[in-house]
Design a binder for these strands. Structure first.
Lengths: 131, 131
DNA sequence: TATATCAGTATACTTTAGTATAGCGATATC
DNA sequence: GATATCGCTATACTAAAGTATACTGATATA
């Protein structure tokens, strides 16, 4: 019944898998990368556009995280020679593929809420008589 | 070509999806939850067993993270009346389902390394003549 | 001349996450 | 009696992550 009970499954868990998981977690690491990737899934955007769409992010964090995503091959940064300058951020093909991971997260999250959250919220039972 | 280009896809992205993704990220949040969940996928374990399997984790962190996973319905904690006391940690059904998310992470991570890492490592090109 | 926009950067700070080290009470072994 | 094991907790600390606020230079608009 347990997923890794059989040795054949255990063997399917080499170091490269651990690294792969770490890379993926790294892609989403921190408070802001998920919202940034999420908004870029709707199409390429300029710096100020992203800043406006993500409530409460500071330009410092946005700049830092976009750089991080860029060096990790998840977004591209393109500068256009306009006045004022235009800078566009776009997901790479690899970045776009993250939607599959996000979908598995949505699936798990929805399931988990259905089976767990309801009965574990004491607030929902506050109306009960206790005596 | 863009995944969310069509309005129908945009509509499939309600608030509950955002919450679901947040819940999932929360399940893996921090340095130690992924290794803990990973080791418990191989079967239930006692506190000291997990501590021994996860190199460098301190009992403080292990205790804290196990509590966190417990209140979030990802592991169960069972105390046996032996001497000395035995405490077993086991993934809930919901916790076990996280392997699906981990698999999508493995898939993305492996793909991403193949398409991105090779050409972006300057170290690999250090042997080239530059003049 | 005053103000706004673009895409950020600089400095200083607070908050959160993680580490290091020691210790608990009960029991078992040396 | 000394030491080890179980499953932790307490205290104090360092490091990482995130926030707040102000500012840049070139250009456009009021």
């Amino acid at each position: 019944m347990k997923f890794f009970e059989k040795l054949e499954n255990v063997k399917k868990c080499p170091v490269s898998y651990v690294l792969a998981v770490q890379d993926t977690l790294n892609a989403f690491h921190g408070k802001w990368k998920m919202p940034i990737i999420g908004t870029l899934l709707f199409g390429k955007k300029r710096f100020k556009e992203i800043e406006r769409e993500i409530s409460k992010i500071t330009p410092r964090m946005l700049s830092q995280e976009l750089k991080d995503l860029e060096v990790n091959g998840i977004v591209t940064r393109t500068v256009y020679n306009t006045t004022p300058v235009t800078v566009e951020y776009e997901l790479t093909p690899s970045g776009r593929e993250l939607h599959l991971v996000m979908e598995s997260m949505i699936t798990w999250g929805l399931q988990h809420r259905q089976t767990n959250i309801m009965e574990s919220l004491p607030a929902l039972n506050m109306g009960r008589r206790s005596a």
